[in-house]
């Protein structure tokens, strides 16, 4: 099982205001550190026209992180495909694949904010049609390793029947995760196993390496508060049945319940229960100070990665 880190969103939020320029400088520093300590990959995330500057252009940010490193793989987790020209995304991904020896991963998702579609001149009611057309184009060209971000079994099947990798959102219980993996696998097999090799499955997990009870409580509070961002964005995960906007406390409880906070042995034991190829440790929260973030990157690389190498 490969271990990556995410999600780098590069925001300046109401809870933790900071310099955007500094954020992008930190992205480079974090990429270099992740590579030094043996992390497999770093993943970026995208939104548009949101007050906190949530990164709206992942390809340039990925290019910079790839340029600063020589082994680290960099992925989009996820790029919102219906909001972009799929042809242009494919060209950009192909370009990064060629320039960086296959270290770029293109993860795509559908998007859910009406504002983002309106800002780009699209009707959100067309998003499934645009997503399917974009996935068909990417599946045909295969410009890089491809992942489809999903929050529902319908979306998992959409990826599976095209032979595309699965990138499972972070706040789900193991039951939901397993149902998404099963739907993906069934759809792939039902479509005649396109590509011949079972497409990879990636799992985003809210986690933090911490030892003492007070550190663990702090980490869980960071996980909880990070979902204020998603409440603001109006996100509701289809499979949880939880409405992040209307039920903020219930949502935070749900997220906390799915988070894995502990020492490397405890986290490794939890992760080993999933039948996935890649785990992206979601550590890019809003509130941790930089010293805490760099420490957890180091610990993931030096403590968790070796434990998961044989899984």
């Amino acid at each position: 099982m490969k271990i990556g880190i995410g999600l780098w969103c590069l925001q300046s939020t109401a809870t933790s205001p900071r310099s955007f320029t500094q954020n992008y400088g930190d992205l480079i520093a974090d990429s270099v550190l992740a590579e030094q300590v043996g992390v497999h990959s770093l993943w970026l995330s995208e939104h548009h026209v949101y007050y906190d500057g949530y990164c709206p252009a992942l390809i340039p940010a990925a290019a910079a992180a790839l340029s600063a490193t020589s082994r680290l793989e960099v992925g989009t987790g996820v790029l919102l495909l219906p909001l972009a020209s799929a042809d242009r995304v494919s060209s950009a991904a192909q370009n990064l694949t060629e320039r960086f020896d296959g270290r770029f991963h293109l993860g795509v998702g559908m998007g859910y904010r009406p504002n983002e579609f309106a800002a780009k001149g699209f009707d959100i009611s067309d998003r499934v049609k645009r997503m399917n057309a974009g996935l068909d184009l990417l599946a045909q060209h295969r410009p890089s390793p491809l992942w489809v971000g999903v929050t529902s079994e319908i979306a998992a099947r959409r990826a599976g029947r095209r032979g595309l990798g699965l990138f499972i959102s972070g706040a789900f219980s193991s039951t939901v995760v397993n149902s998404l993996i099963e739907a993906h696998r069934e759809a792939w097999e039902g479509a005649g196993s396109p590509g011949g090799e079972r497409p990879a499955v990636g799992l985003l997990r809210n986690l933090w390496l911490a030892d003492t009870p007070s550190e663990r409580r702090q980490a869980l509070d960071w996980v909880r508060s990070s979902y204020l961002v998603y409440a603001g964005l109006g996100w509701g995960a289809d499979s949880t049945g939880v409405d992040f906007t209307a039920q903020v406390e219930a949502s935070m409880d749900e997220v906390e319940a799915s988070a894995i906070v502990g020492n490397a042995d405890e986290i490794a034991e939890n992760l080993e229960s999933y039948d996935v190829d890649l785990v992206v440790c979601r550590i890019g929260y809003d509130q941790p100070p930089r010293s805490a973030l760099t420490e957890v990157i180091e610990r993931i690389g030096t403590e968790l990665v070796p434990r998961m190498a044989s899984s």
Binding site: P60, A63, A64, V89, S91, A92, N95, L96
Partner: peptide
């Protein structure tokens, strides 16, 4: 070059 690749190349040069 191909559309979509321009700014990412500039980003590489930037760093």
């Amino acid at each position: 070059g191909p559309s979509g690749t321009e700014v990412s190349e500039a980003a590489s040069i930037a760093i």
